[in-house]
């Protein structure tokens, strides 16, 4: 892994000025204008990642700020053996995991348990035979609950390590190699986690769609387990 990380960083074109060693030197010198530039370049992507990791925009805003505070403080520890952006995302992933753990310990997780139960009802066969359209259309409403919300619940259900791989792929559009660098996992593990995470999300979404559909068909709400 470190060998491939080094190779990836070395083979990368130095066209991005933020990846230039001189820029990193300015950050090390705590040049606040350079730092502002860095934050502006990555704030959207970092926020997009952490809001999906935490599922809470207010917490995500605070945590995204903490990510950059940490970058500012720890920039001396960036050794340049990966891309700067990779290092920033590694911090974002680690802080998100810590915060998610803290939040889950602080708050109740009754909703998560409820969601976990739902996930076990519908066989995956249907999911794998591909009703991607159901997952793919955000405009499709089911009993007032948007598919997007269901997908968010599904993502919340994933184990942290699966969730982060999936998010880095789907939300950040990272290559498997980049994800491997950010997470420190072998590329093969990254691929298999993304595969399984996608299948689990689809399983959950279809279970929920089926559940809501069933309720509507039976003409009653709630209750039935």
């Amino acid at each position: 892994m470190p060998a491939s990380a080094g190779a990836a960083a070395a083979s990368m074109p130095a066209s991005d000025p933020l990846e230039h060693p001189a820029f990193v030197e300015r950050l090390r010198a705590r040049d606040t204008r350079a730092f502002d530039q860095l934050v502006r370049a990555y704030e959207r992507r970092v926020f997009a990642l952490v809001v999906r990791m935490l599922g809470n925009p207010a917490e995500a805003q605070d945590l995204a700020q903490e990510v950059f505070v940490q970058v500012f403080r720890a920039i001396d520890q960036f050794r340049g053996d990966s891309k700067l952006s990779t290092w920033v995302f590694r911090i974002a992933v680690n802080l998100s995991k810590n915060r998610a753990l803290y939040l889950s310990r602080r708050g109740g997780n009754a909703e998560q348990e409820d969601a976990a139960e739902l996930g076990e009802r519908v066989p995956l066969g249907a999911a794998q035979k591909g009703t991607a359209a159901q997952v793919a259309r955000p405009d499709e409403l089911v009993e007032g609950m948007q598919v997007e919300q269901i997908v968010q619940r599904a993502i919340a259900e994933l184990e942290d390590s699966f969730r982060e791989c999936l998010l880095l792929r789907e939300v950040e559009d990272m290559s498997y190699e980049e994800i491997a660098e950010v997470t420190g996992l072998p590329v093969g593990t990254v691929k298999s986690r993304i595969h399984r995470a996608r299948a689990q999300v689809r399983l959950f979404v279809e279970a929920r769609l089926g559940e809501v559909g069933g309720k509507v068909a039976r003409g009653h709400k709630g209750g039935g387990k």
Partner: peptide, 17 residues
């Protein structure tokens, strides 16, 4: 796996941000 994602999941996951 790509078919499972097929861009649709990404679209939903990016949505709203």
């Amino acid at each position: 796996m790509e078919a499972l994602g097929d861009g649709g999941l990404a679209a939903v996951m990016k949505g709203g941000i």
